[in-house]
Design a protein around this nucleic acid. Structure first.
Length: 574
RNA sequence: CGGGGAGUAGCGCAAUUUGGUUUAGCGCGCAGCGUUCGGGACGCUGAGGUUAUGGGUUCAAAUCCCAUCUCCCCGACCA
């Protein structure tokens, strides 16, 4: 490809709104262009990268025995209503239309319903199972807040796959196949990634893994143990802590409970400061509505309540913080002064961290008052203990007890064991060996194709620009003639371009009539792994120069040896 | 959805506070000519604007007032 013919806008200034490195570099290198808030279009060179990712994904999915299909984004509203997901998805948009018969159809962002519906019509027998279907298409979501440039956009390219099995063992098998396939895909792309235990969230089901690419501009936090390999998303990471300890009810040093004035002081930090104690000597009392039912949860002051864990424990889907009025009605005190002492007619749960505490501070359920020297058992009782808090950087690995670290990462893939949630709702049944009708057991698997590209750049760049690897680079080699007006240079550059292309090497020929400095800067920015310079030293001594973008290593050789040297370097590229 | 900020040439900005020497400027980019040419060159010339939109105040509005739209940032579990 000739640079002068390629559609590459150049930005000298970095767009102001850019935050993520990948976003800045992709804009400047002409891989993407911004259309509106949250939507981007991929320019020709950007598409070359996406095509490579898509090719890898296709190859690996096909190797796993999956069938590619393409499903419509428009689907009848009844499908959504059957699974109860209509209008329930956070951050998703369901655009409703009416066809000419007045029937409502929606433009939905996910395909669990439609694929289940399709399969229910096609598959009747256990002999036709298992099946894995996948598709690669653009999805649109009404993101409440697109951000980080290309990382969280309203529109993105997704590969989604669905597995159908006769039984749970079959699902395990399909799940393992997809897990391994995902590992191969990310490895082939050259991404640094970690598979973590994750929360299935709104998708339902019980087992789920997220594939995370550690990167500074990531949106999510993960817990990783380098000793035993434990990895989990922050929502899921376990904090067993004082699980097996007995509550400090018989401690000899229990002091008498006492009410103290704390005028207008509501936050843990301020209460601790005011009473001159550490935040870990406080207990937070959080009033929640679990599907409308009032529930109180106690957590040590320096920890944070993890609603995802709690929702799992309570087996509810809708779990929210209670509003001010509810709190006042229930506790008798304003928000910020809640405490467990004297709370009646409400389920009280406590995080394991409470077990190790005595003589602690809580709200008094009265305006501007807190209680000190509060103790479990003596002053109030707790019905249930559990793991309801977020992992912190002080916590040890829940598996091996060694140091575990918190990292920021980008989600690049997510796989779920769905079970029968969708197949039951949409009657996707099959006849088993005994002739009995059973719902299919499903799994679903997603990869953000364009996010792989962004994540790769987040992990592979320097101050000059992007550094592509062999598998994702839009071109294998950049041919850079420094002086377009020298006929000799121009000629050999064009000949090499033709010859290498003929041998299956993808080349970008920078045939622009620009100053060498500009071309060098653009070459570094675009980040093609190999750069062949034809310039002064060619005119003087007949030498060409081959430079590796990643290491900066450079090799000189007579132009006669160019083909062999280049083919050899390409073969050895990482 | 709540709070804050911003819309002026393709991009980045100035002029807005105090309405009037502003024919709305500057840098980058773009076009032409010339000189340059191994790490983002230089000179000269030139094109490019209904100052987001709609109302209003005024002799006079980019500038003041009202409304609308769009974009960006922070928050939307952190008690």
């Amino acid at each position: 490809m000739r640079w002068s013919k390629a559609f590459i806008p150049t930005f000298k200034e970095i767009p102001r709104e850019a935050e993520a490195v990948s976003h800045i570099l992709m804009l400047r290198a002409g891989l993407i262009r911004k259309l509106t808030s949250g939507t981007y279009t991929y320019l020709p060179i950007g598409w070359k990268v996406l095509e490579k990712i898509i090719k890898i994904v296709r190859e690996e999915m096909n190797r796993a025995g999956a069938q590619e299909i393409l499903m419509p984004a428009m689907q009848p509203k009844e499908l959504w209503e059957k699974t109860g997901r209509y209008g329930l998805l956070k951050g998703d948009i369901l655009i409703t239309y009416r066809d000419r018969h007045g029937k409502e159809i929606v433009f939905g962002p996910t395909h669990e319903e439609i694929v289940t519906y399709l399969v229910s019509g096609e598959i009747r027998s256990y002999k036709q199972l298992p099946q894995i279907l996948y598709q690669i298409q653009t999805k649109f979501r009404d993101e409440p807040r697109p951000r980080f440039g290309i990382i969280r956009t309203a529109e993105f390219i997704m590969k989604d796959a669905y597995s159908f099995d006769c039984d749970w063992e079959g699902l395990d098998k399909s799940y393992k196949i997809m897990y391994a396939t995902y590992c191969r895909i990310f490895e082939r792309c050259g991404l640094d990634y970690i598979a973590v235990e994750a929360d299935p969230g709104m998708m339902g089901g019980d087992v789920s893994h997220e594939f995370m690419a550690p990167a500074e501009s990531g949106e999510d936090k993960i817990v990783v143990c380098s000793s035993c390999g434990y990895a989990a998303s922050l929502d899921k990471a376990e904090c067993p802590g004082e699980r097996n300890q007995k509550p400090e009810t018989t401690n000899q040093n229990l002091r008498p409970i006492k009410e103290v004035d704390t005028p207008g002081i509501t936050t843990v930090e301020k209460v601790a400061q005011f009473l001159k104690v550490n935040p870990q000597e406080l207990v937070k009392t959080i009033i929640l509505l679990a599907e409308g039912k009032e529930t109180a949860v106690l957590v040590r002051g320096d920890y944070e309540l993890n609603l995802v864990k709690l929702a799992h424990y309570l087996k509810v889907e809708n779990l929210v913080m209670a509003d001010e009025k509810t709190i006042e009605k229930l506790t008798g005190g304003p928000m910020g002064f809640s405490g467990p002492v004297g709370l009646r007619g409400i389920r009280i749960l406590a995080d394991y961290s409470l077990k190790g505490m005595f003589n602690f501070v809580t709200g008094a359920n009265k305006p501007d008052k807190h209680l000190i020297n509060v103790n479990l058992g003596r002053d109030f009782s707790v019905e249930e203990f559990g793991d309801f808090r977020y992992f912190t950087s002080q916590d040890k690995c829940p598996r091996c007890g060694e140091e575990a670290s918190l990292k920021t990462a980008l989600e690049i893939g997510h796989i779920f064991k769905l079970g029968t949630k969708y197949s039951q709702a949409l009657k996707a049944n099959f006849l088993d060996r005994a002739g009995k009708e059973k719902p299919m057991i499903m799994g679903c698997y997603g990869i953000g194709i364009n996010r792989i590209m962004a994540a790769f750049i987040e992990q592979n760049y320097d101050r000059e620009g992007i550094i592509w690897n062999k598998s994702l680079t839009p071109f294998e080699i950049l041919i850079l003639p420094t002086h377009q007006n020298e006929p000799l240079i121009k000629e050999i550059a064009e000949n090499l371009d033709k010859e290498l292309e003929a041998r299956g090497v993808s080349c970008l020929l920078d045939d622009r009539e620009l100053h060498p400095g500009v071309k060098f800067k653009d070459a570094d920015l675009l980040g093609i792994p190999l750069r062949l310079v034809i310039g002064r030293s060619f005119l003087d001594k007949g030498l060409l120069e081959l430079k590796l973008r990643r290491t900066g290593e450079s090799f000189s050789f007579p132009s006669g040896e160019a083909r062999e040297k280049i083919l050899d370097k390409i073969k050895n590229l990482a």
